[in-house]
Amino acid sequence: MSVVLLAHGDGGLLTRELVEGLFLKYFKSPLLRQFSDAAVFNWPGSRLAITTDAFVVDPIFFPGGDIGKLAICGTTNDLAVSGARPRYITASFTIEEGFALADLEKMVASMAVACAEAGVDMIAGDTKVVPRGHLDKLFITTTGIGMVPEKLDWGYHRPVPGDAVLVNGSLGNHGLTILAARENLGLTGALASDCAPLNNIINLLQEQCPGIKMMRDLTRGGLSTAAKEIAEACGLDLCLREDALPIDQAVRGAADILGLDPLYLANEGKFLAIINPAQAAKAVDILKQNAYGRDAQVIGEVCAGKGNVYLQTTLGGTKILGLLAGQPLPRIC
């Protein structure tokens, strides 16, 4: 019996199989085949980007955010890393009967705060309620539209060997925080999600650093999955250095205990940028002055190759990073 498994939704290998093997069989727009975070297209008089995302996080309130803030940040970040200035957002709420109205209001208020920070307007919405037990508390689906500057040319066709690879900060915080909160692991003290709208800092970088060639956000599947997808789409290798990767001590420690690799854990306030090496230091400087880029680092470079991601370990060895395969599972002992 062939059925949908949880792993089909983890953003890794099985998700890709499902998208390529099923959805693309029926939907043939070349825009869909960009495989980027948002579809960018020309519209009379402007260039637009559109993206859509469902949010099903459990628990819905977690250290560093909640499902509402996450929905706004996730959608605006998908637009921003595609080069767009997010402008409008719509939201569809599917709510389980019996959900506390006070919690709903708390969550909607938090969405409003995130919208204000990102500078996007909520312009349409929909509400559905399903009988108790038909879904878990609350799911939110958001769609975002943004404007792309006319001359901006970001994409997989741009990187060349020698380009620098940078990230805007510590890796794995969101994934580990959610896991620790969901399973009551008692590790939550020092952990918080990095959930944040990145469009302002990305827009600033866009203006100051025309050498940026492309960006990806590092959500499901973490740095490894995004880096592997970039390498494959560009037909080049990414050569990263373990000692340059920013990982918080709390994340490293907790991931160690659970046998998880922070490089495969989700982030909700992190992006990877590929940039002309001459501008990399400037970009890092700009990022470091921003709350959402304080731990920014150049983590490696683009190399000639065939779509692999190599990580040079601190000991001087080399390992290959790949797509996330299956949900990150903690080990037994």
Binding site: G259, Q312, T313, G317, T318, K319, C333
Partner: peptide, 13 residues
């Protein structure tokens, strides 16, 4: 866990 550590640190290579 040793197997994993030996691989992930690159010691094997």
């Amino acid at each position: 866990t040793h197997t994993m550590a030996i691989s992930s640190t690159g010691l094997r290579s």
